[in-house]
Design a protein around this nucleic acid. Structure first.
Lengths: 202, 202, 202, 202
DNA sequence: TCATAAGCGAGACGGTACGTCGTGTCTTACG
DNA sequence: CGTAAGACACGACGTACCGTCTCGCTTATGA
C-alpha cells in the first residue's frame, strides 16, 4: 500500500524543539534577515535585538550559518499546513499559493540558506531532515488523498512531478524581477500538473 | 510574425567584451568559485591566482559581487549554444542536458550570483540583460523553430512553460542532495513539456 | 622606646581566618597561579579544581583580584617565621633566603598581586595591613634583637635600610632571567647591610 | 681593560627602529597605559586614539602584550640619558632620580610588562636585549667613569651593587603606598652605595 | 634617444564582523 | 539556607576580508 510510505515522515508540524529564549533569538534573526539580507545581518545585531549576548547565540548555534538555517526552518515549520479541500486542483492551488507567499517574504533567507547549506554537510543534513523531507511528506499526503479519492492513479506520481511546482516557484522567488503570483500557480497547476497527473499512462 | 520578436535579443553568443587580462581574472575567479564557493572566495586570492594586484581587479569591477557576476556570465556565454536537431523533443532534451551540466559545474557560483544580484539593482540589471534575456531568446528560438515546423502551435507557448524546465533544473542544481541528471530532463520533457505543448488548446 | 613600635603589629603569624572550605579554594587558587600565571587563571578553573561552584567563590571574594590577593597572603602567612640565631648576620641571611625561596615559588602570584593591588584601593589596604605591616614588624623585630644584643645602634636603622633587602630580592624574583640565590643574599648582607648598619654614625 | 666590556652593549640610545606610524601607535599605547592601566587598555582604544585600525596594530605586534612591551621600551629609550657630572655621587643621584621619575610616571606599565614578560619567552628576550642590557651598560658606564677618575676601585663593583639601586627604586615604585623620592635616592647613595663602593676591599 | 604618463605589482591601511573566552551576576534544583 | 551547576550580559581578544590608497617599477609613446 502506497500510503504507508507517506507516513514515514509525517507532514504534521512537530511541536517546536526550541525554548522560549531560543525562539526569541530565531525570531530576531528572521526579522533582521527580512530587513537586511544575510550578508548585512550580524550576530551582534541579532543578540542586541533579542536583548541577548553573542555568547548566548553561539551557545546554541555554532555559526551564523547554522543560526540562519534554524531560523529559516523555524519560519517554515509554522507556515506548513496541509490543505484539504477535497479537490486535488484546489489543494495544489492552495499549496502553491502558500509556497509563493512564504517564499516572497523570505527570499533573502532562502538564498542565504542555499549558500550556507552548500558549504557544510551538517547543515545539509539538517536541511534535508528538518525541511525537505517535511515538504515532501506534505505534498505526498496531498497527492495520496487524491489517489484515495480516485482522482488520479498512484502510478502517475513521479518524483519530478510533485517536486516541480515547489521547486519552480521557489526558483522564481529567489531570482530577481519575476516573483511568482497566483496566476503563475494557476498556470502550472492547470497546464502542467493536472494534465500530467490525469493523462492516460502509456 | 513571432520570429521577429525572437531576434530583438539574439541568442547568438556575442564575442567577449573582455581583454585578455580581464579574461584571465574572470577565469581565476570562476575557478576559485568552483573550488571554494563564494564566501570563501577572496579578492586577494583572485588577484594572487591571476598574478595581479587587487587594484587591477577593482579597477575593472567595483566590488566582489560585480566580479563574480561577470565571471558567471562569461562562463555562461561560452556554453550557450542553440541545439537544432529538427525535433522539438530532441532540442529540449539537449537544452536541458546542457543546462544541467553547466549548473552542476557552477552551482556555487549560481548561488552566489543570486545573493549578490538580490542586493544590488545594478547587478540585477546586468543579470537581466546579459543572462536572462539571452536564455529566454535561446529557448524561444527553439520553440519558434518547432512552431515553424508545425510541431506545436504558437498559442501553446506560455511564459511559465518555456521557463519551467530551466528554472526547475537550476533549482535542483543549487539545492543539496538531488542534482538533476539526464533522467530528470527526460521526465520533464516527456511527461510535462511535450504533453503541455501538444495538448489541444481549450 | 623603640621596641614598643615593633609591637603595634606583631610579626607572629595569626591563626588563619579561613574555614576549611575557604582554605581549599585558596589552595586551589595558589596552585593554579603557580602553574599558569594570573592571566590564564580562571575563576571557573579554581571552582572546578576545588569542586566548588563559581558562586561559592564569589560569595567570599568579590573579584578575581581579591581572591588572588587572599591566596597570596595566606601563602605568605604560613611561611613567615622569625629567625632567631643570636647573630644579626645569621638572622639576615636566613630572612633573605626565606624571602628568596618563597618569592621564587610564587613569582607569578606576586606579579599578579602587584597589578591587582594597584587598581583597587581596598586591595591596597588589605595588602598593607595583612602583608606589608607584617613583614615590616618581622624585620624590625630582628633588628631590635640585634640592638638589644648591642650589635648595632638603633639610630642606624632607616626605613630604606631594612626594606632594601626584601625589596631587591623580590624585584629580582619577579624580573626575568636573574632569580636571586643564596649568594645574592650573602653579598647584600655582607657588603651592604652589615657595613651600613655597623658603620659609625656621622 | 674593563672599559671594553662596557662597550659590548652601548648605553647610547639607538635611533628608534619605528616608523612614524608605529611611533604614533606606541605613543597612544603609552598614554592609555598611564591613564587606565594595562587591564583596562584595549587594543581598540589604542587604534582609535591613533586613528588606526586594529589590523594595523596587530600587523606590527602580534598581541596586546607585545604592543605594551614595545611601548614601554620605546618610552624608556627616550628617557635613558647618562649623567656625567664628574662626581660619582652626583651621577648616582641623578641616575636614581631619573629612574624614580620615570618609574613613577609608568608604574602601571612596568607592572604590566612584568606580567607579560613572564608569560612569553620571546617577550623575555626582547626585554633582556632592548631594556635590561641597555640599563646595565648605562650604569656600568657611570661606574667606569668613576674608576677612570680614581674615585673607586674596579674590584668594588659587583653585579648586586650596581643593580641594587635601580631594582629597589623600581620595586618601591610598583608597590603601593611608598613611591620613592629624592630622599630615598639620597639615602641609598650615601648610606649604601658610596660606603660599599669606597670601603677597603677585604 | 630620452622623458613623461599611464598601468601595474605589491601590499599597508581603515573599517567591520566573526567566533572565542573570561568575568561577575543570576537562577534553578538539590540536600 | 548554602551549594553545585551552569545560563546569562558584557565586552575584549585576535583573525579575516573588503575596498581604498600609496608607492615604485615597467612600458609605451611623443618630443
Amino acid at each position: 500500500m502506497v500510503g504507508a510510505v507517506t507516513r514515514i515522515v509525517d507532514y504534521e508540524a512537530d511541536s517546536s524543539p526550541w525554548s522560549a529564549r531560543e525562539a526569541e533569538l530565531l525570531a530576531a534573526t528572521l526579522q533582521l534577515l527580512q530587513q537586511h539580507g544575510y550578508e548585512r545581518l550580524t550576530v551582534d545585531a541579532v543578540a542586541a535585538t533579542a536583548k541577548a549576548s553573542k555568547a548566548t547565540v553561539y551557545r546554541r548555534w555554532p555559526s551564523k550559518g547554522e543560526l540562519v538555517l534554524a531560523a529559516f526552518i523555524e519560519g517554515v515549520r509554522c507556515a506548513a499546513v496541509r490543505p484539504d479541500t477535497g479537490s486535488l486542483r484546489e489543494d495544489l492551488l492552495r499549496l502553491g499559493e502558500a509556497i509563493t507567499e512564504h517564499a516572497a517574504k523570505h527570499s533573502a533567507t532562502i538564498r542565504a540558506v542555499m549558500v550556507e547549506v552548500s558549504r557544510d554537510p551538517a547543515l545539509r543534513e539538517a536541511m534535508q531532515h528538518q525541511f525537505l523531507d517535511q515538504r515532501k511528506a506534505l505534498i505526498e499526503s496531498v497527492l495520496q488523498h487524491a489517489v484515495d479519492r480516485g482522482e488520479i492513479k498512484a502510478e502517475a506520481i513521479t518524483e519530478e512531478l510533485w517536486d516541480l511546482m515547489p521547486g519552480y516557484l521557489i526558483f522564481r522567488s529567489i531570482v530577481p524581477n519575476r516573483p511568482p503570483d497566483r496566476q503563475t500557480v494557476r498556470v502550472i497547476v492547470d497546464n502542467v500538473l493536472i494534465p500530467s497527473l490525469t493523462r492516460p499512462i502509456s
